[in-house]
Write a protein that binds this DNA or RNA. Structure first.
Length: 319
DNA sequence: GCACAGGTAGATT
DNA sequence: AATCTACCTGTG
């Protein structure tokens, strides 16, 4: 035991790599970083303390924080540094010219959009693993972000492979350091075990989707690169995937910026700010793609963030 | 106790 | 085609 303690102490000092800068991109505020990581795109980022976020995706674990100038810095458990260094730019989409993307939104003719862009400068769309994004949003139906995160935490802890060797247990004692189960692994889990992860009626959808994907192992990777409409048509074949979830998976897990998910927040935003009261989700989606153009999904994320903030901190009613 | 959550699918008009 | 409901379950 004493020996193990010494080993863990040594590992603890070398456990996390040094902080290093992520590729250059517009500076972010703490609020915008929180909105990117914990605003409903991704469900496996947790605020640790003091502006440090811990996240897991695919077989990567990383911590993120902002330096004094608002640029993102990252570190990773020492054994995973190379892997995270290779994956993080894609995940955070650092190659995209974010300013140019935002600049090509129709802000000139949309005063509300300008307000949203000003309130969350630098807000961006992540590029998450396709399959994991599908799993996350299959959990999302009528659930709040905190509960979706809890479901995925259960799934990872109980059914996902550990990401660090056993000897790291004392250094990294948290059950958080498991990846999510793959779809092949999910296919082998009885529905009752999924329900035990607090999935509720979503358990059946995930179980059936897992059977489907296990029977066609290349289905997901064949779907991801298809054009938006073709990929969406395929996703809609999956049990439990409707318009909204399909658009979320394509936007947050396949970089299809023309996807325009219409959830209750966007419903509110378009009703309150654009006067589209009483419109149905399919009509609103059509409006969104027509009004905001080929980057409608990016605009959607700004509208979403603004509407949530407005609801969270209601101020005196103004037009 | 009960309405409500970042929906979908199947039944009923 | 459009509208109504059941589906799980933690939270307020």
């Amino acid at each position: 035991m004493g020996k193990t303690g010494e080993v863990s102490r040594v590992e603890a000092s070398a456990a996390w790599s040094d902080w290093q800068p992520l590729a250059a991109h517009p500076a972010l505020s703490a609020e915008v970083l929180a909105e990117i990581l914990d605003g409903g795109q991704a469900f496996r980022w947790h605020h640790e303390t003091d502006g440090v976020w811990l996240g897991i995706w695919s077989d990567c674990i990383a911590r993120l924080r902002l330096d004094s100038a608002g640029h993102v810095e990252w570190c990773a458990p020492a054994p995973l540094v190379g892997r995270v260094a290779a994956a993080l730019p894609t995940y955070f989409n650092t190659d995209a010219d974010h300013a140019a993307l935002v600049g090509s939104l129709p802000w000139r003719s949309d005063a509300h959009l300008v307000r949203c862009l000003d309130e969350f400068p630098g807000l961006r769309i992540l590029q998450q693993p396709f399959g994991e994004t599908l799993l996350g949003f299959l959990c999302s139906a009528t659930k709040q972000i905190a509960q979706i995160k809890q479901m995925l935490a259960f799934l990872a802890a109980r059914h996902g492979a550990p990401l660090l060797p056993e000897t790291s247990f004392l250094t990294f004692p948290s059950s958080r350091f498991h990846r999510l189960p793959t779809w092949l692994e999910l296919a082998a889990i009885p529905e009752s075990d999924l329900r035990a992860c607090q999935l509720g009626f979503r358990a059946l959808y995930i179980h059936q989707t897992a059977q489907f994907l296990a029977a066609q192992p290349r289905w997901l990777e064949e779907t991801k690169p298809l054009p938006y409409l073709a990929a969406k048509a395929r996703l809609l074949e999956l049990p439990g995937v409707g318009d909204k979830i399909a658009d979320c998976v394509l936007l947050f897990g396949a970089g299809k910026l023309e996807a325009f998910p219409v959830d209750t927040w966007i419903l509110q935003a378009l009703a309150n700010r654009y006067g589209l009261t009483g419109w149905k989700p399919a009509q609103l989606a059509q409006f969104g793609r027509a009004h905001f153009g080929p980057l409608a999904g990016l605009a959607q994320q700004y509208l979403f963030a603004c509407e949530r903030r407005a609801a969270k901190a209601p101020l005196s009613r103004n037009s």
